[in-house]
Design a protein around this nucleic acid. Structure first.
Lengths: 223, 223
DNA sequence: AGCAAGATGTCAGCACTTTGTCATTGTGAT
DNA sequence: ATCACAATGACAAAGTGCTGACATCTTGCT
């Protein structure tokens, strides 16, 4: 994990840098604000530690410019002047956490771990198979980038098949999973549903295994 | 936005609760740890504020049990005894931020805004989606630079949808976040509200996913 | 306090979609 | 060729969301 440290006080920079490296991070240390901003804008960091009182560019200004440019890595702000109004401003400028000087190194590391942990858990859960992409957050299936408009039942069907791609699913299992009360064998609701879905898809996504059920084949290629 | 407040000191509970409500949150106050844990485990909150020194269950234990159970709402921890070791433990237990007593109400609100914003994966004080910009500090929605006049309820609705942009929100979830008491499916209050908001917006911001809920689509930009 | 404007919830009606069923046609394995 | 299974088109019943009208509460102002 690469971490950017921007701090003008040489002593603190050395101490924090050493502690970070001891904790296993790869550290880029920078004393100048403008330089630091450039690094944060061009390199890929897992997190940044930023002192507010910097020469050549104000720390809050750096932060705002990063955020305005779409940089989303978590930022831990350090400051000597711990007035509450400045804290509020720092936090509202897009800082992920705030640490007043002086601080214990253990607390800095704990807060750094915390903001890194938090920044992780937010990648979209999307499953793709062939040309189709299933986004469960948007409840949306797209094929070749084109959204496919599905009814709830249709969506559940496709979703279940894609979630179980590479496995044959019996009509029995499907209709149970669609939790429609009718899973008598004399109903062909599943077949009808499959038909409707296929008509809406531009590609042949769902295969039939006559006598066994249906299948969305797993791609053997890439990832 | 619904917030859970667990704090045994009646005075602080009342003060913080009032400030939160004045800031537009819907607040569930609880004095007992066990009760508070149960609420946090069963209800849908946008955030929780948690006092560490609680009767019947330790605050850190609550937090750990929530995280172990997969509850991910952000938690702001309050404590009177601000030793750094306790801070470290709190943060590593899954707290999203820490606030030592005594504190300014403004700082509590700023930190709460920050952890809520972060938990949604955003870093700026204002969230923009398409031509709309939501400023949670001013409680103001602007579209193409023009402010939109919204009622409190309407604002909460839009705010929740924008905070959760890119995710489909069911009517169930929406109505739980819009008022303190849950109400049943035989009301179409949410639909009416959606209609009113749409009439006030110059653009089509809110999409309907028939059978699933509503969605403010995320812009397909940057990363 | 009293008034007026605004906010919020309920209801009924409408339009449209969804979904199961049935009858019929297609298809593949033996 | 046969036969069981699958696909399809048509239909009806139920479901879902949107809207305007209205009643009830709140809120702000004088």
């Amino acid at each position: 994990m690469r971490v950017l440290l921007v701090e003008d006080d040489a002593r603190i920079r050395a101490d924090v840098g050493a502690a970070l490296e001891a904790a296993g991070y790869i550290v880029d240390s920078e004393s100048d604000g403008e330089e630091g901003w450039f690094l944060g804008d061009t390199e890929l960091y897992g997190a940044a530690i930023l002192d507010l009182g910097l020469p050549s560019m104000d720390g809050l200004a750096m932060l705002k410019r990063w955020r305005a440019a779409g940089r989303t890595f978590p930022v831990l702000v350090l400051t000597a002047r711990g007035t509450w109004s400045e804290r509020v401003e720092g936090i509202d400028s897009g800082a992920d956490d705030y640490l007043p000087k002086p601080f214990r190194m253990e607390e800095l590391l704990a807060r750094l771990r915390a903001i890194i942990r938090r920044s992780r858990g937010h990648s979209g859960p999307a499953i793709s198979v062939g040309e189709a992409v299933l986004d469960s957050r948007q409840m949306l299936l797209t094929v070749r980038g084109v959204p496919v408009s599905l009814s709830p039942q249709e969506y559940r069907l496709v979703s279940y098949l894609i979630l179980n791609k590479g496995r044959v699913i019996s009509q029995q299992e499907l209709s149970e999973h669609l939790q429609s009360a009718h899973f008598e064998r004399e109903s062909n609701a599943v077949e009808v549903l499959i038909g409707r879905v296929r008509r809406k898809l531009p590609t042949a996504l769902i295969e039939t295994r006559r006598g066994f059920g249906y299948l969305v084949p797993d791609d053997q290629t890439e990832s």
